[in-house]
């Protein structure tokens, strides 16, 4: 988790990463936040967090990324993270068709549980394994266009296109703020301007009372 210069940004954007287990969601996050490939990555338990500060149109933006477990038994748990996501990265594995076939179900969840302005970005991961490809670029591109998604094939291993996927999503969210289609005063937009920070979120009788412990 990178927390360098935590106060030096204009907005927080919240992202979720969703998709079947084993498609490389955690590895994409790790490549994006640490610029390293994580070999031998165990299945995520519940949800994991990552942050990184990026720049869009000369504005510093803190991405707060919630990487969800892909295993079916976590569906009830991970569904509670969709609400209030400004961006959703929906990932499949280009070498396993079943992970592509399940996209419709992931997309339904994403559409139903996020708000209409949430930017959904489709990622075909493991582009380095072209020899084992099971889903063509053209087919996925057509699926993305039919459903109004932006699409890239990426490799968490080589890092190819990983930055672009995260940054392009942020650019689209930023554009939605600029053109007014994303209302910052609405609930659950997944975007928080810095001037509202720090916001007290501590419920009375909370389990964890110290504001100072919060890495925000």
């Amino acid at each position: 988790m990178s927390n360098s210069a935590p106060y030096n940004y204009s907005y927080i954007f919240k992202y979720i990463i969703i998709g079947d287990m084993g498609v490389g969601k955690s590895c994409l996050l790790h490549q994006f936040t640490e610029k390293k490939f994580m070999a031998d990555c165990p299945h995520t338990i519940g949800v994991e967090f990552g942050t990184r500060i990026i720049e869009v149109a000369n504005q510093k933006i803190k991405l707060q990324i919630w990487d969800t477990a892909g295993q079916e038994r976590f569906r009830a748990v991970t569904r509670s993270y969709y609400r209030g996501a400004a961006g959703a990265l929906m990932v499949y594995d280009i070498t396993r068709r079943s992970t592509y076939n399940h996209l419709a179900s992931w997309l339904t969840d994403a559409r139903n549980l996020t708000n209409p302005n949430t930017v959904i970005f489709l990622i075909g991961n493991k582009s380095d394994l072209d020899a084992q490809r099971d889903v063509t670029y053209e087919e996925a591109k057509a699926f993305a266009e039919e459903n109004g998604l932006t699409f890239l094939e990426c490799s968490a291993k080589t890092g190819e296109n990983v930055e672009d996927a995260f940054l392009e999503t942020a650019r689209k969210i930023y554009q939605n703020i600029q053109d007014g289609s994303l209302d910052l005063n609405a609930a659950d937009t997944g975007v928080q301007p810095k001037q509202q920070l720090p916001r007290s979120t501590l419920a009375p009788g909370s389990a964890n009372g110290e504001k100072k412990d919060c890495n925000c």
Binding site: G46, F49, T51, Q64, A76, R83, C214, N215, C216
Partner: peptide, 25 residues
């Protein structure tokens, strides 16, 4: 989930979500 905190020890579940899980249980 609240947005302000970004780690598993500080996050707070939305009460509505907790009620949903409680109902199922």
């Amino acid at each position: 989930m609240m947005m302000d905190c970004d780690n598993v020890l500080d996050e707070r579940i939305d009460p509505y979500e907790l009620e949903r899980l409680r109902d199922q249980y």
